Amino acid sequence: MLPLLAVLTGAAMALAVSGCSAAAPEGAVSSAAPPGFATERFPRPQRPVAGIVSDQWASEDSRERAGEAARVIDLLGIRPGMTVADIGAGAGYYVGRLAQRVGPKGQVIAQDIDRRTLDRLGQRVSRERLGNVSLVLGAPHDPRLAPRSVDLAMLVHMYHEIAQPYGLLANLVPAMRPGGRVAILDVDGPVPAHGTPRALLSCELAAVGYQEVAWHWIEGRSIYLAVFEPPAAAPEPERIVPCRAE
């Protein structure tokens, strides 16, 4: 989106700095996690990549009227004390709602690859006094999250915009805690139309060793919430076989 879960523009492709620090002031971006596998080691995805048109998928008012965030958060069983990473956080629709659910003993990591998007989100975090939110600046192939720091990673309406999905998924593995999960919210439709077909999503996640554990339809049979368990260790990039969109 938006977010990731997620702004993968040409200018952002050069970004390689990340930030994540619970001790940082509200709204600040600070450096922490080391880089993962280099992008050139991964196969190119054999499918199109949707262009980024906005830092939000739809207006917050319309999403709130539809009850999107409340339903997704309930389905994922997010509870106080958890650490949730919103990959491609964009304008931050989920950030405040997640911060409220995980509570003061939990943490929300708002990640994006666009510095200006994160700066705007940082202002919102400060304005809303979200003391349990930290900001991370990542790269298109690497979320740059600290090792063993995340219970749940969310990629909301942005997976179709990921230019290097195999890299992002592989480099996400070390950040996940034992029992951690990765949740992807997207439209079951063509990638150029800002969706990810179910078969393609399942194939790309499986190519990096992820196992699907739950599938929920959020809006009719069009918008889905897919939940995966990451592998114990990421495969070597050269061993990943890319999927092809039908």
Score class of each variant (00 low, 15 high):
residue 2 L to W: 01
residue 6 A to C: 08
residue 8 L to C: 13
residue 8 L to T: 14
residue 9 T to R: 15
residue 11 A to S: 12
residue 13 M to A: 15
residue 21 S to Q: 09
residue 22 A to Y: 07
residue 23 A to I: 00
residue 27 G to H: 05
residue 27 G to E: 02
residue 28 A to L: 03
residue 29 V to H: 02
residue 33 A to F: 07
residue 33 A to G: 09
residue 39 T to I: 12
residue 41 R to F: 07
residue 55 D to G: 05
residue 62 S to Y: 12
residue 66 A to E: 15
residue 71 R to F: 10
residue 71 R to Q: 15
residue 76 L to H: 09
residue 83 T to G: 08
residue 84 V to Q: 07
residue 89 A to M: 05
residue 100 Q to R: 15
residue 100 Q to W: 06
residue 110 A to L: 14
residue 117 T to F: 01
residue 120 R to K: 14
residue 125 V to I: 12
residue 128 E to S: 05
residue 129 R to G: 03
residue 130 L to Y: 04
residue 135 L to C: 01
residue 136 V to P: 00
residue 137 L to V: 07
residue 141 H to R: 06
residue 143 P to E: 10
residue 155 L to W: 09
residue 156 V to I: 10
residue 156 V to S: 14
residue 158 M to P: 00
residue 162 I to L: 13
residue 165 P to N: 02
residue 167 G to I: 04
residue 168 L to T: 08
residue 170 A to W: 01
residue 170 A to C: 15
residue 173 V to Q: 02
residue 173 V to M: 02
residue 179 G to T: 05
residue 182 V to G: 01
residue 184 I to G: 01
residue 186 D to G: 00
residue 187 V to E: 04
residue 189 G to I: 02
residue 189 G to Y: 00
residue 193 A to W: 09
residue 194 H to V: 03
residue 195 G to I: 00
residue 199 A to V: 08
residue 204 E to T: 11
residue 204 E to A: 03
residue 206 A to R: 09
residue 209 G to Y: 08
residue 217 W to D: 07
residue 220 G to F: 06
residue 222 S to N: 09
residue 230 P to V: 10
residue 240 I to F: 03
residue 242 P to M: 08
residue 244 R to F: 00
